[in-house]
């Protein structure tokens, strides 16, 4: 309890907030096959930087849940594991996008109310 009170919780809370969107962000980039490093670069280029140690294991977990399918390819020399949305993953992505949009609207309303009250 003492630690919680003395340490600045901002970083931890921001990290938790970002974690909530990692799965959705990852799925949006896997409509076509990508290997781990390529995916990380694609997300980073679009403004979402995800730690390697978080992203790569996440891909394995999503594959285990049948959300992603994967295969090894050796097109350009070194072997790479490519991930792509499975049919379950595509259905899940549609559902998650709807959930995200609803959540976003709700949050916008809450934040608007909050800024009106403050003003």
């Amino acid at each position: 309890m003492r630690n919680m009170a003395t340490k600045d919780p901002t970083q931890k809370l921001e990290l938790e907030l970002r974690r909530g969107v990692i799965v959705l962000a990852t799925l949006t980039q896997l409509r076509s096959p990508r290997y781990g490093y390529e995916l990380r670069q694609a997300l980073e280029e679009r403004g979402l930087s995800i730690e390697e140690g978080t992203l790569y294991p996440l891909l394995r977990r999503l594959e285990k849940q049948d959300v992603l399918a994967s295969e090894w390819r050796t097109d350009s020399g070194s072997p790479r594991r490519y991930y792509v949305l499975s049919s379950t993953g595509r259905a899940l992505l549609t559902q998650l996008i709807a959930t995200w949009q609803n959540l976003n609207q709700t949050m916008e309303r809450l934040l608007d109310e909050d800024s009106t009250r403050e003003a």
């Binding site: 290997y35 790569y56 790479r80």
Partner: peptide, 12 residues
């Protein structure tokens, strides 16, 4: 996992 991790780290 070893194969994939090695490939990713090498890529990095």
């Amino acid at each position: 996992i070893a194969l994939e991790l090695t490939s990713l780290l090498q890529e990095e």
